[in-house]
């Protein structure tokens, strides 16, 4: 009997200690607000933006924001092809993030859908919640594809273990994402203040070492650029449909 109980409790312990699960913030959606399918409600309040070790960020400043809605997943190739029928993709990769889109095309898709691109602050709050965490999923992981050089996108809903504390997917891996802000830092010359858009939340690579990027990491890109590593998601105010 003792042995039986030992086995039962051991199994129970193993199943309840799933280290890949990300603790989710319990969010109360106010009465009268309907969250459209595929979007996540991000509540109002303070969050920590940037990190003091990264001078081109907000350096850990506390930012107060209104509530908003953001796409749970990156926009997929299948979704984008409804907006732009000329966009072709392999049928088995319909759930992969759309890429090779310019800033304008990304903005056009969101507008067509009654939405807009998220601001940089909205994106960062959705990725890290209010506790200032470095990784959306809080605990550091090695990227599993180390040893390969090149970009390997995945289906937008494939990594439940890498969600943000609000349940938003793909915020530290998969494609980088266009956000609405121009890239400006303390070192940006005035002439370049409207030259680059910010992209967020992808991977970096040096030879065959692939790394996740922290929630506060900023990258920049000319808005006309279109690469296999850049996609996007949309956001809107709480009253959008």
């Amino acid at each position: 009997m003792r042995r039986f109980l030992f086995v039962v409790f051991s199994l129970l312990f193993i199943f309840t200690c799933n280290k890949d699960e990300v603790d989710q913030i319990e969010v109360n959606i106010p009465i009268g607000i309907t969250v459209p399918e595929g979007m996540v409600y991000i509540p109002d309040g303070d969050f920590i933006m940037g990190h003091s070790d990264y001078p081109d960020t907000e350096k850990g400043k506390v930012i107060n924001m209104e509530a908003f809605l953001i796409d749970r997943f990156e926009v997929t190739r299948g979704q984008f092809s409804i907006f732009n029928p000329d966009y072709s993709f392999h049928p088995q990769k319909a759930r992969f993030p759309v890429s090779m889109v310019t800033f304008e095309q990304a903005q056009g898709y969101c507008k067509w859908n009654g939405r807009r691109l998220p601001t940089e602050a909205e994106w960062e709050k959705s990725a890290r919640g209010p506790d200032g965490r470095k990784w959306p999923w809080k605990i550091y992981h090695e990227h599993p594809n180390n040893g390969f050089s090149g970009f390997l996108p995945e289906a937008v809903d494939s990594r439940e273990e890498w969600v943000s504390p609000y349940g938003v997917y793909g915020m530290g891996h998969n494609v980088w994402e266009w956000v609405s802000d121009w890239y400006i830092s303390d070192k940006t010359p005035k002439a370049d203040s409207k030259r680059y858009k910010v992209i967020r939340g992808g991977l970096t690579q040096t030879h065959t070492a692939i790394k996740f990027t922290p929630t506060y990491f900023r990258n920049k890109m000319e808005p006309t650029a279109h690469f296999n590593f850049i996609g996007f998601r949309c956001a809107c105010s709480v009253d959008c449909r």
Binding site: F151, G202, T204, F229
Partner: peptide, 13 residues
């Protein structure tokens, strides 16, 4: 080798 067909330069160092 371990290199992609696409070979687009990725963000990094």
């Amino acid at each position: 080798g371990p290199y992609s067909v696409d070979g687009t330069i990725q963000p990094g160092t």
